[in-house]
């Protein structure tokens, strides 16, 4: 069978679908001081999952606010800098109006994913962290 680390090189999706792959990618991103990008990506997925479940509206709102505060609010943050102003305004508007929507972070997640695909993921595959592991 194909070793997992070769699968990780196939696509970002294959990498993010494997616990060890995520761990190694995170180690690399930490070195580059941009691990928040990966955390944000997973936070968006987790939020969508929670949103799809019944009840617990208070928790959903609290979580949406927490994601907004940690990753979007500070314009100098590594995640915030890579999300389009219109996307940020949309999220801010949702939070301010307490209008919590399961898809409210989808566009931001797509933008962050594009950054990873074009930038950090190819760099990771050429990095010492990955090459030493293989």
């Amino acid at each position: 069978p194909t070793p997992p680390y070769l699968k990780w090189a196939e696509s970002l999706h294959s990498l993010l679908d494997d616990q060890d792959g995520i761990h190694l990618f995170r180690t690399f991103l930490k070195q580059e001081e941009c691990a928040d990008v990966l955390d944000f990506w997973f936070a968006c997925s987790g939020f969508r999952k929670l949103e799809a479940s019944e009840g617990n509206e208070e928790k959903k709102l609290k979580l949406a606010k927490a994601i907004y505060k940690k990753y979007i609010l500070d314009n100098n943050g590594i995640v915030s800098r890579q999300i389009k102003p219109a996307t940020k305004s949309f999220i801010k508007d949702c939070v301010m109006r307490l209008h919590i929507d399961p898809a409210m972070f989808d566009q931001a997640q797509t933008e962050i994913q594009a950054v990873m695909e074009e930038n950090t993921y190819p760099l990771f595959l050429k990095s010492d962290v990955y090459l030493e592991y293989t």
Binding site: D18, Q19, I22, S45, L50
Partner: peptide
């Protein structure tokens, strides 16, 4: 603030794939 962080952490973990 701690509970907000815990909530975020829990959310991030929930989205990660389980060990195969």
């Amino acid at each position: 603030i701690d509970s907000e962080d815990d909530l975020l952490q829990e959310c991030i973990s929930s989205a990660m794939p389980k060990k195969k």
